[in-house]
């Protein structure tokens, strides 16, 4: 294996995932380009139905090939994951890519002991003996911050709290020291204090293993606290991408700006919150062309939008879809530089 620690090891090129609905295919993810490096946390943020989870399960190869059509290329350490057969994929899943799920209760088999569920991943990817596996289970449970590993290993999922279960899921995901960890809303089902602990555990593990993490979440706070880089998704597309500081300090795309503005903030305690007009289009009603966010900012003239919105690098790898961000303003604000909008 070639150690390319700082280089990107996951390169998602032009990936689209389409679901079959009543015999027709509709894109849930369209033309996504992303890369992940070692030692970084890339957050994919967006609201429900934006395609962020579909992208995750696409990377993991968890879609039923008869119900989905996937195109593009997912270059993972030199192999295109999308060209792998089931057998080849099974050598990657669990071993080189670990996944953490949202609901830690349903993600664990209710009838199997914790120990067996963690060992299972090692059975398929290592040549460890039962004894070695057991030792590793205890080591992992310690690593994810479980206080009494011997006892916990013997328990069943329903005997553990939500935070403990999520730690177990993390232990499973990192058991074989994968290079990539995909965490799909890992803290959504948890209390804030537990959430903070779980995010700490994730970060510590990433540092120890030099893994890259894809953190999928709808929670901007979680993103702001943990992500190195951020990709904002809307209606199946990435609309803005950059470092955490670029996204939070200088958001450009109208959607990113609207989302940030609709958060309850310390300084708008008693004001009404900003509301984005309209609704996310359903898969079947996704506009075939044009800017997908345009219908939700109708006060921005059509001329401001590109007909085929592309990603533009506005400096330092800060990418924004469509040129409309230049002309965007909130309806309750006076447009900056009003008067020379012909620019």
């Amino acid at each position: 294996m070639v150690e390319t620690n700082t280089d990107q090891f996951l390169n998602i090129k032009n990936v689209s995932t389409a679901f079959k609905i009543n015999g027709q295919y509709y894109d849930a993810v369209s033309n996504v380009n992303l890369e992940v490096k070692h030692d970084e946390i890339l957050a994919i943020v967006g609201e429900s139905g934006c395609g962020k989870s579909t992208l995750a399960t696409t990377i993991m190869g968890l879609h039923d090939p008869e119900e989905t059509k996937i195109s593009g290329e997912i270059d993972f350490e030199g192999t295109d994951l999308l060209k792998l057969d089931e057998k080849g994929y099974n050598k990657v899943r669990g071993a080189k890519i670990g996944m953490i799920f949202q609901d830690p209760l349903s993600a664990l088999n209710p009838l199997k002991r914790i120990e067996d569920q963690i060992q299972e991943v090692m059975v398929y990817h290592t040549k460890m003996t039962e004894k070695e596996r057991h030792a590793r289970v205890i080591e992992l449970l310690n690593q994810v911050g479980i206080e009494d590993p011997d006892r916990t290993a013997h328990q069943f999922p329903h005997q553990l709290s939500g935070g403990m279960r999520q730690r177990i899921i993390i232990a499973i995901a990192i058991a074989c020291k994968p290079d990539l960890i995909i965490a799909d809303e890992p803290t959504t089902a948890l209390d804030v204090t537990i959430q903070a602990q779980i995010l700490d555990v994730l970060r510590d593990i990433q540092r120890e293993n030099h893994a890259g993490i894809i953190l999928i979440t709808h929670d901007l706070g979680v993103v702001a606290e943990t992500a190195d880089r951020v990709a904002v998704m809307y209606a199946g597309q990435i609309v803005e991408q950059g470092t955490a500081s670029q996204i939070f300090n200088e958001p450009k795309h109208p959607y990113t700006r609207s989302l940030l503005r609709s958060m309850p903030q310390r300084d708008n305690e008693s004001d009404d919150l900003y509301v984005i007009q309209g609704m996310v289009p359903s898969l079947q009603k996704m506009p075939k062309q044009g800017d997908r966010f345009a219908p939700r900012i109708p006060w921005i003239p059509a001329s401001a939008h590109e007909t085929e919105p592309k990603m533009h690098d506005i400096g330092d790898n800060h990418l924004v879809r469509c040129t409309c961000y230049k002309d965007f303003y909130f309806p309750d604000q006076v447009k900056e530089g009003a008067g020379h909008e012909s620019n």
């Binding site: 804030v192 204090t193 959430q195 702001a224 606290e225």
Partner: peptide, 18 residues
């Protein structure tokens, strides 16, 4: 503890907050 656990949206204070 509860208040300290709320994620801050200000990325500039990330380390301090942590």
């Amino acid at each position: 503890r509860l208040l300290a656990a709320i994620p801050e949206t200000n990325v500039n204070h990330r380390e301090a907050h942590r």
